[in-house]
């Protein structure tokens, strides 16, 4: 599923909304999560999961092609941990098929 497919599903389920509303709803959800992570905050959606930012300290990396060492700066990495309910649904999906 892509973002546009998600919007199409949302529009089909809510015929009273304009295409612009649907686009704005989906954009707002992901923009707000992005904004929270940019501020270093966490986003917790019970049953779905939590978005957090993990710090990675600086280290010495290596170019695997040339073997050359390269300094890798400290950085922040967005991280998502699935909530219990979603984790179980994803895992059970297989058994259902």
């Amino acid at each position: 599923m892509t973002k546009s497919e998600l919007m199409a599903e949302l529009a089909a389920a809510n015929p009273h909304l304009t295409a612009r509303d649907v686009e704005l709803i989906v954009a707002t959800v992901f923009d707000e999560i992005t904004g929270a992570l940019a501020r270093g905050e966490r986003v917790e959606l019970r049953g779905f999961g939590a978005f957090t930012v993990k710090r990675r300290s600086a280290r010495t990396g290596r170019n695997p092609r040339t073997g050359e060492t390269v300094p890798v700066e400290e950085k922040a990495v967005p991280f998502f941990k699935a909530g219990k309910e979603l984790r179980e649904r994803v895992n059970k999906g297989k058994a259902a098929r």
């Binding site: 599923m1 998600l6 949302l10 809510n14 049953g47 649904r89 999906g93």
Partner: peptide
């Protein structure tokens, strides 16, 4: 509507489908 968005994503994942949100992940 927020719940619907999360549920549609969850359902696709439950089916084993990937969910690709451009600009997000």
């Amino acid at each position: 509507l927020l719940e619907t968005v999360l549920e549609r994503i969850s359902f696709a994942l439950q089916q084993g489908e990937s969910v690709k949100i451009s600009g997000f992940g």
